[in-house]
Design a protein around this nucleic acid. Structure first.
Lengths: 229, 229
DNA sequence: GCAAAAGTGTTTTGTCTACACCCATGA
DNA sequence: TCATGGGTGTAGACAAAACACTTTTGC
């Protein structure tokens, strides 16, 4: 299969590691897991796995994520390749990090118990194995940057959400506070939301209208000029 | 060396491929090489090589680049990991792409002859092996995006340059035209250039003042808010 | 003196920011 | 009726865009 001239070169184990973000209405959280193999067994870690011969690197990360969450059709993108010689004390492993956004309620308590996973706010990440903390830091930066120009934040919210929930999300991502009126005006002027005839009544007497992200409207825009705040 | 539980996993050849950009005063160009091994021997390709056991992936890309150009202290950053199963017909190879910016005059005719390399404008890239064209497309997008907030464009210019050369560079990167007065005002207001007492006299009778990028001034800024156009 | 590029300000337009009150409802 | 969060407009500051003429100098 492999041609002659390639054979003289070294080969490597390739891992994928997934930074999984969720949003609980107040904070961005990352899903961590207790490492199930040596070295560093029992320490907190990103969810990961090894790439297999018959799958692409992207496929491997989807496999790992599906295994852990039971979810498919998740927003995911490749983050960075971590290739230092000594990054894993168990051996030379090159890791491709991916970051994923999920709706926090889609991930059940049952699955958390099953896999021994737990959500951590980004401000309270425990010690992690290898270079996983660096991966999370980088993922957070990428999320902040990406969300400015791409409508990926919706992947962290329920399908229908109020403007206040959306604002809280952006505030959590940017770690700042935003003016309600300016935010509302800006986001509605983009013309990518559809207002539903239905209100969220839990958190106020008056109730706040639900909105949904309207993908068709978004795709009609010329993508160059879209700026979400 | 490698611990027991890792041993059951597959391992892979890892390549690095370098997208090397230069600027000739008018256009952004990419440096390509005639591929020296099978498969696809003799076809145009990015410069690449295989990662070795004892080096990090980053080091491998610096090694490949130094081999080709004789240059060290080059601007380079990791672009993306290309990991499709069938991307290389010669065997399963996962490639980490890097993009680099060099001063086009630092790369001599002699080296071009020696390695059989050639500069191609981005609008005239020939057929390339594997997924290399996709790599170049992605690198170009990254360059456009990055140059908006980071002072990396200077890596493509001589140490001293005129404002018109700098403007031509930005115009080439963004594939647009810019207003001379607005550009001058904007770039000077950033306060990251130092004006020299010396003029470039080739391209006009009057002569245009040289400027240099002043790294110290740049580092004094709070990096958050710097926007190059 | 003239051709060719360098250098320089002002006005208009649009976007971002700051800011506070009334509304609807359930208890 | 009142407490709670929901929803809305305007004015000022700032940044971006449009636009054209004078200067310098080698030939």
């Amino acid at each position: 299969m492999r041609i002659e001239s390639y054979k003289i070169h070294d080969s490597f184990l390739i891992a994928v590691d997934c930074i999984i973000f969720g949003f609980d209405g107040k904070e961005i959280k990352a899903l961590l897991v207790k490492r199930a193999l040596e070295p560093e067994l029992g320490k907190w870690s990103l969810m990961g796995g090894f790439v297999q011969k018959n799958e692409s690197v992207d496929d491997a990360s989807y496999r790992v994520l599906a295994q852990l969450t039971g979810l498919s059709s998740i927003y995911m993108e490749q983050l960075y390749c971590f290739g230092d010689v000594d990054r894993d004390p168990g051996g030379r492993v090159i890791s491709i990090a991916y970051f994923a956004l999920i709706k926090i309620d889609d991930y059940s308590e049952a699955l958390m118990k099953l896999h021994g996973t737990k959500w951590f706010s980004l401000s309270k990440i425990p010690q992690l194995v290898f270079d996983h903390k660096q991966m999370i830091r980088l993922a957070k930066e990428r999320l902040q940057q990406k969300v400015t120009n791409h409508p990926i934040g919706f992947a962290l919210l329920p399908d229908k959400f109020t403007l206040q929930q959306l604002q809280a999300l952006y505030e959590a991502i940017y770690e700042t506070t935003l003016d309600k009126r300016n935010f509302t005006r800006k986001i509605l002027s983009l013309n990518i939301l559809r207002k539903l005839n239905e209100k969220e009544k839990e958190s106020s007497r008056k109730g706040a209208f639900y909105y949904v992200f309207d993908k068709k409207k978004y795709e009609k825009l010329d993508k160059e000029g879209v700026s979400f705040l």
